[in-house]
Computed example of a mutant assay.
Amino acid sequence: MSESVILSRAKDFLYGNARLLDRKRFEFHFEGGPGEDVIEVLRTYQNRDGGFGNALECDIRCPSSQPVPTEMALLIMDEIGLFDRDMIRGIASYVRDHTLPGGGIPFVYRSAAEYPHAPWWKTEADDQPAINPTGRMIGLLYKQQAYADFMDEEWFTRNVNYIWNALASETPEGYHDGVQWLSFLENTPETDRRDSHWPLLDAWLARPGVIERNPYAKGYVQKVLDWCPSPASYASKFITDDERYRHLDMLALQQQTDGGWPISWEALSPGTETEWRGWITVERLRTLRAYEII
């Protein structure tokens, strides 16, 4: 299938089905749309406490702020290369107010269970820190320069210390932990300390099964292009050219007849499946563009 057909079919799917947020992401990446438009839509998901909720993470339907949707807001700003000062100020306030006494942010709060949610978005307690999403939240707060007045504050240092301690005593339990390690290590200014941790992460990434190398693998697995959505991805050094090309061919073939890409997990509802497919479709297009397929 030609590159123009792939993009045209995806555009039809997105404008027929996707959230405004993902349509604006598409416009930014493929039609010269302004990043400010993405920010304005993203702002509607932010709450007065500075955190994000309102189903920004499609499987957490509660309106109140939760850690992972707040992390997603940082990811979206990083994606478009535009960190909004006011939005970052609010996120810093949210992280400050939710940092646990020993550092770290919980994976999810019990309030998520008061609304429809995927089975994994539940917890018995609100006081358990987790590297996911603490690592990437702090990593991206390091990376952005729109508002950095908080980086010497005690709560931020407490989170940084929590992450270093976690990296020294744990190994990632899967993809979602691994990307937290990567984001923090790629962005921490403590480069000497960081360099001592790369071998541990490299050894883990090289383990069989961490990066799924079979392009035909089914189910919720993280394949070559999930780890390496662009040639500049850190995990690219673990991937051969042959593996990369086979996965790119399969990725293009996975575009469905309606123009969108599927999700690899059980959807909470038909509506959330459609929302996630909009997000994933933009992600797949970005990967194909990064490797100059489209």
Rank of each mutant, 00 (worst) to 15 (best):
G259Q: 11
Y142S: 10
P116C: 08
G32I: 02
D195V: 05
P270V: 09
K218V: 10
E57L: 05
L14S: 03
E283F: 12
Y245F: 12
E114R: 13
L201H: 07
W155Y: 15
D97L: 12
G178Y: 00
L248F: 08
I88R: 02
E170K: 07
I80N: 08
T44P: 00
R96H: 11
L100C: 08
G50H: 07
I76R: 01
K237Y: 07
P189T: 10
M151F: 10
W164F: 08
G16R: 11
A267R: 12
E79F: 03
K122F: 03
V68D: 09
A112Q: 05
P63K: 09
W155D: 05
S2E: 14
F156R: 02
F238V: 11
F156E: 01
P63C: 08
V5S: 13
N54S: 11
Y115K: 11
E71Y: 13
T134V: 07
L251W: 01
L200H: 14
R244H: 04
S264L: 09
D226W: 08
M77H: 06
D97P: 02
E40A: 13
S93C: 10
S8F: 08
W164Q: 10
R85M: 13
Q145N: 10
D149S: 15
W181H: 05
L14P: 00
K223F: 01
Q254W: 13
G278R: 02
E40C: 05
G90Q: 00
S65R: 07
S269A: 13
K218D: 15
G53I: 04
I105P: 03
D249R: 14
F30V: 07
V179D: 03
P229K: 07
T287R: 00
G16M: 09
W279I: 08
Y142L: 14
L100V: 14
E124K: 14
A18Y: 06
I294R: 00
F26R: 00
L141I: 09
Y175I: 12
I138Q: 04
F238I: 11
D12V: 09
Y45W: 04
S236D: 01
Y115H: 15
R61S: 12
P34L: 03
